[in-house]
Design a binder for these strands. Sequence first.
RNA 1: GGAGAGAUGGCUGAGUGGUCGAAAGCGCUCCCCUGCUAAGGGAGUAUACCUCAAAAGGGUAUCGAGGGUUCGAAUCCCUCUCUCUCCGCCA
Length: 424
Amino acid sequence: MLDITVIKQQPDLVKQAMKNKGEADTSVVDTLLDTDAKWRESVQNLDSLRSESNAKAKMIGQLMGQGKKEEAQAVIKETGDMKARIKELEETEKELRQSRFSLMLRVPNIPHESVPVGTTEEENVEAFRHGVLLKEEWIKPHWELTEEHGWIDFERGVKVTGAGFPFYLGAAARLQRALINYFIDKAISRGYTEMMAPYLVNEDSARGTGQIPDKEDMMYTVPRDEFFMIPTAEVPVSNFHRDEIFEEKQLPVNYVCYTPCWRREAGSYGKDVRGLNRLHQFDKVELVKFVHPDTSYQELENLREDAEHLIKELGLSYRRLLMCTGDMGFTQSKKYDLEVWSPGQQRWLEVSSCSNFEGFQARRMMVRYRTNDGDIETLHTLNGSGLALPRIMAAILEQYQLPSGKLKVPEVLKGYLGGLEELG
RNA sequence: GGAGAGAUGGCUGAGUGGUCGAAAGCGCUCCCCUGCUAAGGGAGUAUACCUCAAAAGGGUAUCGAGGGUUCGAAUCCCUCUCUCUCCGCCA
């Protein structure tokens, strides 16, 4: 959520940001300001009444201590219906506070000035492209190649669990494991701390990163124990520091965390979900940063470079998109997508999304830092995939496919695959 | 899963109805003294919110969470969560 003082002082800026993000109805801002004013008034009333009540209680205590029972009794009478009035005001204050909060949650993050204004994905800016776009006719889509080799078993996945839960076998399993290790090792060498995190989180955590209330349907739930299966490592990793205060000198704090991810992906059908394009369970290595506000845009470039470097080293053709305001989501202030080329499908596949949230997440999660002067400030959070496995697998299976039907091993992975040159 | 004990500030740990946001010690910060190490003295040291142009100051809330009793709750009652010990089970 945004800083309420920004909304109060620059409501037009916030409204313009909403419009740029494709939200034409900006009335929530006015409703929020109105509710906020009412809430503050209510807090003032409540606080002064409580103050009065506390003073009386204190006086009674003193009189009792001095043995002046009758005088104390008189003051007790004075309190009268104060208790009932406080209770009433508390109800009002609570209602206003809650509606103020839920209104705050409905105001999107403000895009950074460097973000192009646009409404659809057409207006994303392709900022960089690397490698040739293979168009060879003989290149098979990854699902055909993996079926021929028995590397990925979608059918048995359906039998055992359901659609979108494939089995990886032999070389494919090994390749995936090699990629995970390569990604993590690379991140460690670039200053990230490796973390292994829970795959189930509680409701507070799901709320902390904003999965609930609005993106509830994205997650699988474990109702009996009131857990949510994580849709991304971002959820446990970001919540790791929920309600905490860093020292300024500790920043930046960088984590790399591999986890499986579960997403219900309700309503996705057709070619989008073919093969490895979109799964209900997939593996991902996630990069998360907690940084000083002054450095967050530099850190976004660092993060993006950390992810992008992996693709480059794998020798894959890819491109980098700077997302326009309309296509970048509610919580981000700036976002890059990295997409690899799928020659078997003749389309781009998103493998990483690197975002700066500024203080949007940190405020909601109450993650702050103490400046060297002792003040407490909101810090900035960023995260990005580094990288998502299935689509990287797909790109490798297609870009490194040989006419023989075997798979050439990318140079950087040889060490992770016992020096093998080819798979298959 | 069963039985018992517990949850207090950065840490240890007092506090069983009133002047307690909370003793004391440790840690940390600043100052003084001393001056090779060590030791000693003083002051300060939670978070959120409201108020204030800002700072200062003031107010409110928070002693695991939520509710209740009371003029008044860290302290009494209820519910929940978590931790520890023993037993069981297990990788």
